[in-house]
Design a protein around this nucleic acid. Structure first.
Lengths: 206, 206
DNA sequence: CTTGCACTTGACCGATTAGTCAACTACTAT
DNA sequence: ATAGTAGTTGACTAATCGGTCAAGTGCAAG
């Protein structure tokens, strides 16, 4: 089981997929097992509970998200341009998901996190740490932007949290309106929170 | 049953309370009935299903929220000051809820809406219409601010949607971080989205 | 060959779920 | 008085839930 057990991995990715498209409560352990073509006994061999499986699934998925974020926020791009790349990647991932599953699904961390946070402290903490992870990407780009004289000094941790909130809210809208176009002005709104206008940022790109 | 049946009303308020504190999936019809001191037969006399009860509960609660929003966004206050009042009311309601129930609960429309939107079209549409309701308050304040020369002309519907996203994201943070202090800089961030700095808005207050 | 370990299997459990129903009560209009 | 209506009740169901378990399989090391 140590390195990469296929069954375990399949359960992890299947669970995340189903909970992303539906919810924690409406996805049963039987559903996950059926879709993963794994028997229930194996499920409980690898995970002590549905809640633990969910935490592990979030952890694994977050690693993949990090790989994407590392690209968008790569130091090879100018700091402010990184937000543009992030906004674009966000829009693309939501559009792609709607294409494959027929519905706009938003963000599983948010949906499942909100669903369980008052009842399951493990999941609440896992989602909290993921949110902090996003903020770290934002904040370091802002710090670097300041260092390069692109933005004035300020409380960048605070701005990062505001950007995180904005992005999460846009993902909420995406799912509720069932339309990825809710993300159309993500970039512009982020730059307003940062305190620069879009024209200025476009100039910085060229 | 016509005017105001007490049992029906009790069911509505109890359901919203429980789903706000927990979730749709983890609150059973039995839970609602027990807390409301109503027998299950009566529940299904008034509502054909748990889903219908939830839609009705949202509708009733939204009326009460509207009354609060009417105060904050009353024309008797300068247009931009209305956002400050809104931010304050938001912080107060979250703090009060955490005081009474022990946990930060965020917004039930968001939590339950995300939980069910891909599976229950009635609930998705109800939550969508509530979100549009919020945006209408924001947009009309922005239009009036423009009319009074406080902000330059622009696409205020778009800005209103961004404000809505920001506020929802902050409410997500409130629940996930289990801390109403996530709302501390709501006002400031809203004004950044509008495109004015806080000092200017404070000047407008005095 | 054999022991042991990692993993798999399917039958099983008690609890809980949303929803049903026929019988009942209490009030109101005629 | 009586008939009808609005609301109430608790026992009931069939399905599903998360979780358990003893008995297996297949493989690798000694």
């Amino acid at each position: 089981m140590k390195p990469e057990c296929e069954t375990r991995t399949k359960l992890l990715t299947t669970a995340l997929e189903l909970m992303w498209e539906r919810s924690y409560g409406s996805v049963s352990v039987d559903d996950i097992c059926a879709r993963a073509d794994v028997r229930k006994g194996s499920f409980y061999y690898f995970f002590p509970s549905k809640s633990d499986l969910t935490v592990a699934a979030f952890e694994k998925n977050w690693e993949q998200i990090c790989a994407k974020l590392d690209q968008a926020f790569s130091p090879q791009h100018p700091p402010l341009e990184r937000f543009s790349r992030f906004a674009k990647a966000l829009y693309q991932s939501q559009t792609e998901k709607k294409g494959t599953c027929g519905k706009a699904c938003g963000c599983p961390y948010i949906s499942v996190g909100l669903e369980l946070s008052t009842e399951d402290e493990n999941i609440r903490k896992k989602v909290q740490s993921i949110f902090s992870g996003y903020c770290r990407y934002f904040e370091s780009a802002l710090n670097e932007a300041e260092r390069e004289g692109l933005i004035p000094p300020g409380n960048h941790a605070e701005t990062a949290r505001a950007i995180d909130a904005l992005v999460m809210g846009l993902l909420v809208q995406t799912k509720i309106y069932n339309d990825p176009e809710a993300l159309k002005h993500t970039e512009q709104s982020i730059f307003r929170l940062i305190g620069i206008d879009v024209a200025q940022s476009i100039a910085a790109h060229s």
